[in-house]
Design a protein around this nucleic acid. Structure first.
Lengths: 193, 193
DNA sequence: GTCTATAACGGGATAGAC
DNA sequence: GTCTATCCCGTTATAGAC
């Protein structure tokens, strides 16, 4: 059972996903969480405290980067696993959209808030390491530094495409197509070495 | 001699680069530009107008910090031209950093602000078309749709890497290296078709 | 710990003089 | 075109009851 603060933080993620960091109103957050504004201040001191804790919460939760899979399903090839993992962030479902929007806000906020950077950097580097491992499984023969660089590019591309999608620049299907082709290009490059 | 509105727009880019779109206060903008708040409203109608025009200003200007080149040097190959153009946004100089920060902020804001989307979409599509043209020059034989997709990926990657750089995730040199390798991968892919 | 009621404030926007 | 002064609203934040 979620604690009171967790309940509020989860509500905060939803509100941020809807209106952004700048659009978070304490009163709306209270309504979303089903509590009073007074309670928000009781638990978080002030609005900045809510933001700080929420953005940490987002990067800690990093639900982003883990796939829960049915253990009985047919095993994925390394390449399928990689593709699936990257496409996870490019789906037009409520939950993914929420997560991606919030993550984008976190990244954007970190540009102006040194406190968030550390948190963000470690979450990102975890993600990059995971993708690096998948790429290594796709092509174990590639020189050591190549999969790491490819992973940095592919994850950065996910973020770039995600922003374009969320800001209405491209439909989500286009983003997915572009992503898959990028995987192809990167794997081809690993092969050629 | 810069016009009054240009002077204000330049100040707006600086303020946004420092504090983000979220942190832009009309009063601070006025101070930065050395004018009164009243004048801001006279020229831009409201705060949203400032943002809209600033976005246009940034995208117009981005084309312009084009490379100071030695006139005696050999002319650039199409590929070099492409590389230069993409690397333009990944330079740790005051002006570029300012532009990139502001651009990232506007992109992030557009997720929650439909008014900015239109503007952003047309600026982006212009950029994508330019990169597409360069890619076509690199490999005129490639099928028509391939350079366009590659251009979308490369520009999205610039944005993704730029965010990582600005949020302290990677140093600018790393971003540049990753970018160049991506160009290589994309060109190789065009070749293979 | 949690709520209701309200005080205090920030900042967007306007009016009117020059 | 530009400035000063000010209004006004939405929001943050606090006080005090339960």
């Amino acid at each position: 059972m979620a604690s009171r603060t967790t309940q509020i933080l989860e509500a905060a993620v939803r509100v941020i996903a809807r209106h952004g960091v700048r659009g978070l109103r304490v009163e709306e957050l209270a309504a979303e969480a089903g509590v009073s504004t007074g309670l928000i201040y009781y638990h978080f001191k002030d609005r900045a405290g809510v933001l700080r804790r929420t953005l940490q919460f987002i990067s800690d939760r990093a639900g982003h980067y883990t796939t829960v899979r049915d253990p009985d399903a047919a095993p994925l090839t390394p390449r399928e696993e990689l593709e699936q993992s990257l496409l996870l962030e490019l789906q037009d479902t409520g939950e993914v959209r929420e997560n991606s929007s919030a993550w984008g806000e976190l990244r954007a906020s970190a540009v102006f808030d040194p406190l968030l950077r550390e948190e963000l950097a470690s979450a990102t580097s975890l993600w990059v390491r995971e993708v690096t491992a998948m790429l290594t499984r796709v092509n174990p023969a590639a020189p050591a530094s190549a999969p790491a660089a490819a992973a940095e590019r592919l994850t950065a591309l996910v973020e770039g495409l995600s922003m374009r999608w969320l800001s209405g620049g491209i439909p989500v299907d286009r983003a997915r197509t572009l992503m898959l082709e990028a995987v192809e290009a990167e794997i081809a490059m690993l092969q050629r070495r």
